[in-house]
Design a protein around this nucleic acid. Structure first.
Lengths: 255, 255
DNA sequence: TGATAGATTAGGTCTGACCTTTAGCCCGGC
DNA sequence: GCCGGGCTAAAGGTCAGACCTAATCTATCA
């Protein structure tokens, strides 16, 4: 440049030009999150949004797809279809946690650690906040566990019970996390044959004892008993994991 | 129909026809999650996917957008751009938790409850798993807090410290959750003027004491001190919230 | 009255063109 | 020699318009 010496130091920070679809998505997201629209409110049809925003249908659709994946709207096809506002629930958290766990090949140990951190608190809060409906769910899950025939039925009922405890805490964040962790543990425990009659009996007993503490509105006992239960389960699962890992590597060596 | 009487009872259950873009997205998602492609692997360009899948570019793009929102790929424009495999990190969990918290207008109390459940465990694990780099981060955050001028700087450094503890636990699930909670608390505490000199001094002291326990590899002390700290903070925040709620409603009445 | 065949409205997909961004390359002037 | 500027190519981003498919509503006919 010619006038390099006398140049005043005008500095700009690096800028980012957002995409059109992102702009629309952000605008709609903010409106939805602000609570301006109650659950179920229909957004205008795509073609209507096109004339309002003067964007192309492609762009509008992309924005809607983004919101759909984020769980902020639900899209139905057909007449009387369209995009309907939906406030995100526990599921969306559970989904993304599941992606993290699966995608990062996270050690099962981490999942159990997290569970040991969370479930006692769930139990404590459940003892404080449970309502009759919660107790009914807990009892139902307990019975399902005791009378379950197949391994699959047992595991499913087991998950139900743990989720029921989380639900009884009436804390949506903890509930979402627990749903995700349960799903992850469920799918991993499914294939390993570590659930025998003894494990089942112990599980039933532990669940009953926690349930009773929750029923009695005894936060400390609930948390304490849950801690013991989860810790024992984690330890057992870990041992089995190691054992199968060893046997697998032995098989590998043999073949 | 004419032959209504002799019709054999062929029954089908209700079926759901998936969308083309979902099929592609699911296929790619499974491949990515299976770990088949290492981080950073480029997917074929859109037009190439079109000829391979025989779908239209619209459909292909929609599938890619889905994966992008789920944090499984990162899309760059321009030459040498394209879609690159990305294993989901803590951020995606944090994002979805943030949506849950904001969208459901979740009580701040729930956030604090969750934090009280998680942070002591983080501290306990941190004491066990911390490496020198973790300690450096903790010390740095501590200093930043002590020397922070503005309220904003203080809060930011505060978040940094808590995230650093979570990171030191070397548990990616807990870390993701903590990032989300910190962000949520940060944005809500920002506007309420409850951080005064006294609060700051107390915070610094509490952080130092937890940091020391982590440094000394003392899990129990770490967890205990963190419990105290978080609990005190939650209680204080709650009190302020109530006070402002009252004063706000008074203002409402006055105007 | 009750099935059923349109009509209507909405999202889903396809085509093909053009715009924008970015990396790499080439070339000419200092 | 090297540095800046401009060109080119590759890739995603946007647009317009047509057509397909799903779901609902409605009017009609047996």
């Amino acid at each position: 440049m010619t006038a390099n010496e006398a140049r005043p130091a005008i500095r700009l920070s690096p800028m980012q030009v957002p995409k059109a679809s992102d702009v629309l998505a952000t605008e709609l997201r903010e409106r939805i999150l602000s609570g301006e629209y109650p659950e179920g409110t229909p957004l205008p049809p795509e073609r209507e949004l096109v004339v309002q925003t003067r964007m192309s249908r492609t762009t509008v659709r992309e924005a809607l797809r983004i919101l759909e994946v984020q769980g902020l709207i639900r899209i139905k096809a057909g007449r009387a279809g369209g995009a309907f506002v939906q406030h995100p629930g526990e599921d969306s958290v559970a989904d993304s946690l599941e992606l993290l766990i699966r995608g990062r090949q996270i050690r099962l140990a981490s999942v159990h650690e997290t569970r040991e951190a969370i479930e006692p608190s769930c139990a404590r809060l459940a003892a404080r906040n449970r309502i009759p409906a919660d107790l009914r769910r807990l009892e139902a899950a307990n019975e399902a566990i005791a009378s379950s025939g197949s391994l699959d039925a047992f595991l499913e009922a087991n998950v139900d019970w743990h989720v029921a405890v989380a639900t009884a805490s009436h804390n949506e964040i903890l509930t979402g996390i627990m749903i995700a962790l349960s799903r992850a543990i469920y799918t991993t425990t499914r294939n390993e044959g570590f659930v025998n009659e003894e494990v089942r009996a112990i599980t039933v007993r532990a669940h009953r004892s926690v349930t009773r503490a929750i029923k009695d509105r005894d936060p400390d006992a609930s948390a304490r008993r849950m801690t013991r239960h989860v810790h024992a389960y984690a330890k057992a699962a870990l041992e089995v994991e190691e054992r199968t890992a060893i046997s697998v590597s032995n098989e590998d060596r043999d073949t």
